[in-house]
Each structure stands twice: as structure tokens, then as C-alpha cells.
Computed example of a mutant assay.
Amino acid sequence: MAKRNATETDKQQLYTDAFFNKGHWGLKIWQSFIALLGWIAVIIPVVSTGLSFWHSVDPRVPGLWTYHEGVFEIKFIGILLLFMFVFSSLFAVTMTIIQNRKRDRVVEQWPTFNPINQKKRTKLLAQFMDDRFGTPAFRESVRDYHVKPEQNLETDTFQKMYEANDISDLDE
């Protein structure tokens, strides 16, 4: 068995669809037929309802039905949809304004941490984990791992480690 290189592993396809593979003509014809049937089931009622409503306004347009209740219901649904559109638009605009203000106030401020110290902390934590629990390759490949009592961490282990190495949390 040949080894895969890193790019093959990164591009690994996690799903398959027989419709797009070569062959499988029966599946392609069946799924296309079902999709076409679904679109017809959507388009026919919309067109017939639209033509019938238009017929109530202009008698020259052919309509399939002329029930007054149906016309009233379409008008009611139209008003309801307009009402929902107005309120959802108001909500979207309001949330956009709030998020833009929050971004201007919080996100675009000067960072409250020192990026250099962050790199030092990352390296220090990586070294600590390697010393205490083994290499990253071992930690990522092991299925079950039993932590020895002396490997347990105290609540302030990392804080003590930062203080011992003069790495502060905040930029001063």
C-alpha cells in the first residue's frame, strides 16, 4: 500500500454522491425525474394562483378560479408577508447598526494582550505538555491514556508557570 502525501490527506473527500460518478444512469434519470416533478409541483400552483388573482383584477387574463374567499386570502397573505418583511428588515438594520458600533468600540481597539508574550506562552505551554504528557504525535495517536496522579494539574499551574518565566497576561 502506497503512502499518501500531505496534500492527498488534506484533500480527502469525506462524502460521495453516486449521481456525479461515471455510470449510474438509472439513478441519474430517476433523481432528475423526481427533481423535475418537484419543480412542477411548485410552479403549477404558483402560476395558477397568480393568474387567478390577476384575473380578479383584469378579466381579460384567463383564471382557473374566481372565489372571493381565495382573492381575500391572497390579499391577506400579501399584507401579512409585507408586515413580516418590514419587521425583519427593521430587525436586520438594527442588528447591523448594533454590530457595527460594537465592532468600532471593541474589536478595532488596540489589543489588550501582547502578541510577543502570546507566542512565548504558546511555546512554553507546548514544551510543558511535551514534558508532562509526551510528544504531540504520541498524544494525537494514542487511543486510551491514563493520567498518573503526579500528572494532574493544579488550578493555578499555568499562572505559576507564566509568573516563573516573567510572562504577563496583559500588555503594559
Results as ranks from 00 to 15, higher is better:
F133T: 00
V61G: 01
V142K: 07
T66D: 12
R105N: 15
S52E: 02
Q13D: 12
W39L: 09
F158P: 13
W54F: 10
M1K: 12
P59G: 08
V47L: 07
V61A: 01
D104R: 15
A6Y: 07
L125G: 05
K102H: 14
T112Q: 13
L81E: 08
P149L: 10
K11M: 08
I44P: 01
V107W: 04
Y15C: 05
F158K: 02
I44C: 03
A2L: 10
H68Y: 10
E69W: 15
T122P: 01
V93M: 06
W25F: 14
V147E: 05
L14K: 11
Y15F: 12
K120C: 03
N5P: 11
K28V: 00
K123Q: 15
G38S: 07
V42F: 03
L81F: 11
V71E: 13
V46I: 14
E69I: 10
N117C: 05
N152K: 05
F53T: 02
N152E: 14
A18S: 13
L64Y: 12
R4V: 08
P111A: 08
L81S: 13
A18E: 15
L64H: 12
F87D: 08
E172W: 03
K11C: 15
M1C: 09
Y67K: 11
T122A: 06
T7V: 04
F91R: 11
P45K: 00
L51N: 01
V42T: 02
S88E: 13
F20C: 03
M84G: 08
T94I: 03
I74E: 02
K3F: 11
